[in-house]
Design a binder for these strands. Structure first.
Length: 475
RNA sequence: GCCCGGGUGGCCGAGCGGUCUAGGCGGCGGCCUGCAGAGCCGUUUCACAGGGGUUCGAAUCCCCUCCCGGGCUCCA
């Protein structure tokens, strides 16, 4: 509300309640959506890692004009269309590694609560009924517009003609009366369906009560949606604030224009994931601060891919470094540096979840590893484990650890076979029979298997994918 | 019309009053390597839309201007 960064103090102990505006399930998720959900996924991972007990709630808008329109185009039942896209949404979240949401709450399963809230709002004089529906009288709520710095009387521009039965043009619908043949519910005000804004307050008040810690969503929702949420909830419960910390993600644009369904300039998560692995997309999006706008260019994704690869090379280097029992001064120094990089990483994340700055700390660590390896060529075993744990902590907050999507190749026989070829080739190399050795490497490469000779032995990997030794099930 | 953002070196992108440089990608040169890859070292001339101010000192604060985007239907 203050538009400033403020110290984060949860309402109760170390418990944090976070709500993020979820999707309207009538089409597939695109990169713009991914940007927002990814930002909150990282925030959630970080808060948990920082010791907070976080409950992350997201709504699913499964009743809405667009779904109904879509359903009628397809001549299908709106609810089945909603369920289908909800399922696809979950699949997309999963493939992006967005696993931090505790509970998804469907609008259609909270209609009772919405009706109750609307009844109370009418009783308290904040809402009124007309022949077309029930509306919230924004003049009754003095704080309306405070979050987005809007003066209601200045909101004069309308791209759609306001409903003529409303008292004020900016009053918003709580309940829309609709004919029987449409998808809807019975209510004290007749058959119809709820307005869009009421579902979130019904859901958050149900699960979180009158006030909670963090509310997330994209900046485009700040007005009127979030204003409406505040007006509804605070009028209903009589308590304020509804939310202690409001956060808004910046928009993803394409050629300077907002990526959106209506403009048709969107690229779906499924599409982009057919070309890049999830870690790359996560890294790309995390390379900008969550509040900043991002102008999408595929070449920048490719840039991110390069950057991520060099980071992962450093991780590989640390994982495969030779270990010794002895502890050298340089080992201790290295560990000290590793801890300092971790501190820097966490400090960045504490500063309004500054992922780009946190990533810089990660690169500093990577460079530390490579330089140490170059200089020392070995590392104490315990120090190595500690350093790897630190690295794991950092990469798992961002969710950019390596993915293993080569399940068809997980057959140990195949692994053994590749290893055999590598061993044979190494023998040839020792005998300086480079032509044959290079032919083996070349042929394997044609098959999509890349070899890389290092001081610690030959590594291999599936082209464009993380190295074989990586086994990441916990992203 | 009103309310918000944003404009940083070839590209991406932090910083938002002062210390030495953010960081990355790309380019170039070198080292290492049988070669390749990876890595390391160096380099890519004094970057901050423009103009005024405030200040000992501004990319960072104030004012004005320009450009781009978002909101005031629905939209992450």
């Amino acid at each position: 509300m203050t538009r400033r960064e403020e110290p984060f103090v949860p309402i109760r102990g170390n418990r944090v309640k976070m709500f993020v505006c979820g999707p309207t399930v009538y089409d597939d998720m695109h990169l713009g959506h991914a940007r927002t959900y990814l930002a909150y996924d990282i925030i959630a991972r970080f808060l948990r890692r920082a010791g907070y007990s976080l409950f992350y709630l997201m709504n699913i808008t499964d009743v809405d004009d667009k779904i109904i329109q879509r359903a009628s185009e397809l001549r299908r039942d709106p609810l089945s269309v909603a369920r289908e896209y909800e399922r696809r949404f979950s699949e997309d979240l999963e493939s992006l590694g967005i696993t931090s949401v505790n509970l998804f709450a469907r609008a259609t399963e909270h209609v009772e609560e919405m009706i109750e809230q609307i009844s109370v709002l009418i009783k308290k004089g904040f809402a009124y009924e007309t022949e077309t529906g029930v509306y919230y009288d924004v003049t009754k709520f003095p704080h309306y517009g405070e979050l987005s710095h809007q003066d209601p009387s200045e909101l004069i521009k309308h791209r759609v003609d306001p409903d003529p039965t409303k008292r004020h043009v900016h009053d918003f619908a709580l309940w829309k009366k609709r004919p029987r043949e449409e998808f809807g519910w019975n209510s004290p005000w007749g058959y119809g369906r709820p307005g869009w804004h009421i579902e979130d307050t019904a859901i958050t008040v149900t699960y979180f009560g009158p006030t909670y810690d963090i509310h997330g969503g994209a900046i485009e929702l700040i007005f009127p949606h979030h204003e409406a949420e505040i007006a509804q909830a605070e009028a209903f419960t009589g308590e304020r604030p509804l939310v202690k910390y409001w956060t808004h993600t910046g928009l993803l644009t394409v050629d300077g224009e907002k990526m959106s369904k209506s403009l048709g300039n969107f690229i779906t998560v499924r599409e982009i994931l057919s070309r890049y692995e999830p870690g790359v997309i996560r890294f790309y999006l995390a390379s900008s601060h969550y509040r900043s706008p991002i102008d999408f260019k595929e070449e920048n994704v490719a840039q991110a891919e390069q950057a991520l690869e060099s980071l992962r090379n450093a991780i590989d280097n640390l994982e495969t470094i030779d270990v010794t029992e002895s502890v050298e001064d340089s080992d201790l120094k290295f560990l000290e540096k590793a801890r300092a990089h971790r501190e820097e990483f966490m400090r960045s994340m504490c500063s309004d979840f500054n992922t780009p700055s946190a990533i810089a700390a990660l690169f500093a660590f990577a460079s530390e590893i490579n330089r140490f390896l170059e200089r020392e060529g070995r590392l104490n075993a315990n120090v190595k484990n500690d350093a790897l744990a630190i690295l794991h902590e950092m990469t798992s907050i961002l969710g950019i650890k390596k993915y293993r999507r080569v399940t068809e190749l997980e057959l140990t026989e195949l692994y053994d076979l590749i290893r055999l070829l590598i061993d044979v080739r190494d023998a040839l190399r020792r005998e300086r029979k480079y032509e044959l050795a290079d032919e083996i490497r070349g042929r394997l490469e044609q098959m999509g298997i890349e070899l890389e000779d290092t001081a610690g032995g030959t590594r291999w990997r599936i082209a464009g994918r993380p190295s074989s030794k990586d086994d990441d099930r916990n992203l």
